[in-house]
């Protein structure tokens, strides 16, 4: 799966996990900020995204600070997942 496909899948999973009814994957920009601006997510959503990473990609965040970098946008999430998956191989 290339990054573009992964980002599309992530957008669909974020919408489902966070119950963002009325939001379509195409309305989420690859580099749009996920928190405060952009999707306007909050700290509870951050916990839901950590669960999403573990559940769907078997990836655990090492520390909370890492989350700020990883969850900046769909693009940074995809980069993080691909980097971890490459290490696992």
């Amino acid at each position: 799966m290339d990054k573009q496909e992964l980002m599309q899948r992530l957008k669909e999973q974020i919408i489902k996990q966070l119950k963002l009814e009325g939001t379509k994957p195409e309305s989420i920009g690859d580099h749009d900020p996920l928190f405060v601006e952009g999707l306007g997510l909050d700290s509870i959503d951050a916990l839901e995204l950590i669960v999403l990473l573990q559940q769907e990609y078997k990836i655990k965040l090492n520390n909370a600070e890492q989350g700020q970098e990883v969850f900046r946008s769909v693009s940074t999430m995809a980069d993080f997942i691909m980097e971890r998956q490459a290490k696992q191989v």
Binding site: I44, L47, E48, V51, Q54, Q55
Partner: peptide
């Protein structure tokens, strides 16, 4: 999920 991955909401 064997008592892991619990939804905070």
């Amino acid at each position: 999920f064997n008592e892991e991955l619990l939804s905070p909401t």
